[in-house]
Design a binder for these strands. Structure first.
Length: 440
RNA sequence: GGCCCCAUCGUCUAGCCUGGUCAGGACAGCGGGUUUUCAAUCCGUCAACACCGGUUCAAAUCCGGUUGGGGUCACCA
């Protein structure tokens, strides 16, 4: 950046009227990336001018989401509800200059307001440049003299946004496409207060599978970022995923850390059309990130789900669990489905599941010859391979696997035998032989 | 409905600006291999330029229209 260029300032301006939305997260991400890329600053402003709908508790979900995602903002977050005096002075000035006026109203409902402050609309065409879409022109006549404040102390959204962006010296307004139609009236307001027009970039929307805007109403909790945190997604995966919807690096590369995104980001490579939120791809990405995690982190997550289980056993089956999950919430699924219960004790099962138990005695003999010291995956395999090949692998391996796991679907018998140990393996085979005899 | 935005495989997208390679990659799907199940993994495979017209020797790419989808129309943000 050269000295005569203004320092880049972007901002994220969420409203604490609901849980932090997935689309807000992406807007925050792109604003963050752009600011960091250009050595500028990224600010956070809480838009809580609506006293009825704004809730302090919901502000927490904003901070939580930002910090979970690792999107650090500069300085303290600003709260519009604490800036009333600033808006009032602008309002007074506008009224004095005739760009706004107090308007007598007939109350919309009984006991309603009898006067509001309206903007004196110059009624003209407004053309602005959008970094992503090019020039956009609106006729502002249809906006009429829109209301900008309920009173001198109660500014409305458009006024507050324009004043704050001006006061905070925001240079780039990066926000969702749903704000395109708000832009002309904000530009009118900027001109009225003598503010510079920021550079606009309207991001394509994140869509639900039915191609409509993702909304809490229609799509439930899956629209909030907190949901993904609870589901055990990794923030790195979420960031990566969010970046890739609506933006691409221009190469075949798919995996990016936040810092790498900063380096490669540019508004030029942002998509114009809306994009469907594809959970399958998120899952794939999350797996990629889980695979890169340090062992201790994964162990900790597994222990959280199996707090009473034997630690040594858990550690042994960790790779198997890792192979079967896309998110940490899936660990709970493994526990609840009981699919790995056989690692913690003799499984129960229908004898008929053994199918060909007649091969079990010889299997046992071969395994018994192995030294406990060499009781590992490869030796076990070797010990049985010739026999299994001769008799038919399915005929030998299937009953062995069922004897050890009691299940139709499970990891392969060699792996299981190696993990549960020689003694336990022989014990389970004996058990299978015994119940098979009783049945026949 | 008015205004605005958008349009390449099922999904995310490359290619479009600077017309000319079998329209490339990823996810999902399907098929196969890997010590015969499940998972994982590897390999392979299916699959798209919305439509019509124009410009041009040549159009996914430029222009116009049509259709379709979306957004937005508060004393919410």
């Amino acid at each position: 950046m050269t000295d005569n260029q203004k320092k880049v300032v972007t901002r994220m301006a969420p409203s604490p009227t609901g849980y932090f939305h997935i689309g807000s997260a992406r807007t925050a991400l792109f604003s963050y990336l752009f600011a960091r890329k250009h050595g500028g600053s990224f600010l956070l402003r809480i838009e809580d001018t609506d006293k009825e709908r704004s809730k302090r508790e919901l502000e927490t979900s904003i901070y939580d989401a930002m910090s979970w995602l690792g999107l650090s903002y500069d300085g303290e977050a600003l709260r519009q509800s604490e800036r009333t005096a600033i808006y009032t002075s602008y309002l007074e000035k506008m009224i004095a200059e005739g760009t706004a006026y107090v308007s007598k109203e007939t109350p919309v409902e009984p006991g309603g307001r009898t006067e509001v402050i309206r903007f004196k609309n110059p009624n003209r065409q407004v053309t602005f440049h959008d970094e992503i879409r090019g020039d956009i022109t609106f006729d502002t006549t249809e906006l009429k003299d829109f209301v900008i404040a309920k009173s001198l102390e109660e500014p409305l959204y458009h006024l507050a946004v324009v004043i704050d962006d001006h006061e905070m010296a925001v240079t780039h307004v990066i926000r969702g496409e749903d704000h395109i139609s708000n832009t002309p009236r904000q530009i009118l307001l900027q001109e009225a207060i003598g503010a510079m027009r920021p550079i606009y970039a309207h991001l394509p929307l994140i869509l639900a599978p039915d191609k409509s805007k993702m909304s809490k109403r229609k799509h439930g909790e899956t629209v909030s970022i907190g949901y993904y945190k609870e589901q055990g997604y990794l923030p790195e995966a979420m960031i990566n995923f969010l970046a890739l919807i609506g933006w691409n690096p221009g190469t075949d590369r798919e995996i990016f850390s936040l810092d790498e995104l900063v380096e490669g980001f540019s508004l030029e490579r942002v998509q114009k059309s809306g994009a469907v939120f594809n959970v399958e791809k998120l899952n794939w990405l999350n797996r990629e990130y889980i695979k890169k995690l340090p062992r201790e982190r994964v162990s900790a997550e597994i222990e959280k789900v199996f707090p009473d289980a034997d630690k040594a056993t858990l550690e042994k089956i960790e790779p198997l669990i890792l192979d079967r999950i896309a998110t940490f919430a899936d660990i709970r699924g493994i526990k609840e489905s009981g699919e790995f219960d056989f690692f913690f004790g003799q499984p129960g099962y229908e004898t008929s599941l053994l199918k060909t138990p007649e091969f079990l005695p010889e299997t046992r003999q071969l395994l018994e010859k192995l030294e406990p010291k060499t009781w590992n995956l490869e030796p076990i395999k070797e010990a049985l391979w010739e026999f299994a090949t001769e008799k038919g692998r399915g005929k030998v391996l299937w009953p062995l696997r069922v004897a050890l796991t009691g299940k139709e679907k499970s990891p392969d018998p060699f792996t299981v035998a190696a993990l549960i140990g020689k003694e336990e393996t022989l014990k389970r085979i004996d058990h299978a032989i015994e119940i098979a005899q009783h049945t026949s």
